[in-house]
Design a protein around this nucleic acid. Structure first.
Lengths: 239, 239
DNA sequence: GTGAGACGTGTACGGCGTACGCGTTCAGAC
DNA sequence: GTCTGAACGCGTACGCCGTACACGTCTCAC
């Protein structure tokens, strides 16, 4: 059985070695890729374009990142580094977890492409920093490590699901070039037809009774508060 | 300003018209695409392969689906149709919402590619059926339609986030051809090195103290219960 | 000095989504 | 019964994509 190279990028990141001085490294490549993704969207990320942005040949990148999948993992960890974790843990687990959730949501808004890669939990430095900070928030509550993970993960998984739904909207807008109002204008006739034809009482109520343009920040806060309430109950129970 | 075609596929689905009898329609195409995705994964979905599976030329599909994005939306609605909604609403909102969440999770496990498309909430027949059933579960609790949506969406968004994390794992396994044990074997040395070098007390606790191979079903139930607890609190408050 | 390894490049392969134009088939207008 | 034009499926082609592989060049260890 051969010694396979580790499948973890983080164990494969090389530093300047014997050859010519490098004009490229994984940090710069990652930064270029992030900038590209931020500007032009997920679908614009290509090895060729990233390389072009750095005035290098596409194949030059492979000396440093192994594959496009590797690059996306580096990108993910890189933006995780933007999270501000100062003052965490603060002593109030609820405030801290809420701050982490809000931070993660902001991160997804700043980099809407994050959600579109399916990753294992990455072992990058920023992901680890985040994990440590997150678990520190829920330490000292008399919970074992599994329960601590439950608290943290539940809040963050809700956040991820919420944000992904938001971003589906954003992404569709970018692809179709239609904002929400334009979309409504286009779908209006179809929805009217649906309501006329079928038995869709709740769709009707949504359209007639629901708040018209709810502030997504407010909705997020409201739902996050419910989730945190559920976590609180769990802490009380295990004491 | 020209009359653009509606951006909603559902308003553009055509039926047999004047020309030659069709040998293809969006239902058959969608079914073939779903089968392909189930067998070979997201990355295998291509117009060419779907067409090949039906013994047709790739371009024939475009007569019926408009674009690959359209096709993915059809696929999403198609699998939503697999959800069993009989007996919903049952009278117990909590049991119903839990059932919906479990159903959605099962759906994602059966079709792991679902999560990889960013969609607007689709207006397909099955999505509408699901929406109606979901809101029916949380009706009669004295909540307005916005609060009803909060309840339903919070549970489902948590589910989506949970499942996407699970699937990141599954997907990575398919891509690398390494199961979890193999992955652990490969990453073990790197993690040992991390623990030796850095200050990662919680990673250490996770590895030494956490349950070794937690049953994901159990973890999901436990966390979902917490979320539902949070929702319960909200209902009590608004009465 | 010299050899080996690191670095970036050029070329090429097989795949992709889909625009465009074509012949064929048939429902409805006359 | 004939004609016509819309609907249908196909062939070709374009410009992308990820990346395997072979190559020349540069630098450090010896």
């Amino acid at each position: 059985m051969a010694d396979e190279p580790p499948p973890v990028i983080w164990a494969r990141l090389s530093t300047q070695g014997r050859g010519p001085v490098r004009t490229l490294d994984h940090v710069a490549i990652t930064a270029a890729a992030v900038a590209l993704a931020d500007e032009d969207g997920v679908d614009a990320i290509s090895m060729r374009k990233v390389a072009g942005r750095m005035d290098h040949s596409p194949m030059a990148l492979y000396r440093h990142v192994g594959s496009k999948d590797d690059l996306t993992e580096l990108m993910y960890d890189a933006v995780l580094g933007e999270l501000d974790l100062t003052g965490i843990p603060s002593g109030s687990w609820r405030a801290d977890v809420a701050r982490l959730a809000q931070g993660i949501r902001r991160l997804h808004h700043a980099h809407p492409w994050i959600a579109r890669f399916g990753h294992r939990p990455t072992l990058g430095p920023n992901a680890l920093r985040f994990l440590e900070a997150g678990l520190a928030c829920v330490d000292g509550l008399g919970l074992d490590i599994d329960a601590m993970m439950d608290l943290l993960s539940t809040a963050l998984q809700f956040t991820r699901g919420f944000v992904e739904q938001e971003l589906g909207e954003v992404d569709a807008q970018r692809r179709t070039g239609l904002d929400f109002a334009g979309y409504q204008r286009q779908t209006g006739p179809f929805i009217s037809q649906l309501l006329q034809e079928g038995e869709l009482p709740y769709l009707k109520r949504l359209i007639t009774e629901a708040e018209d343009l709810p502030d997504p920040d407010v909705v997020f806060e409201r739902r996050l508060a419910m989730v945190l309430d559920g976590l609180t109950a769990r802490i009380g129970r295990s004491r």
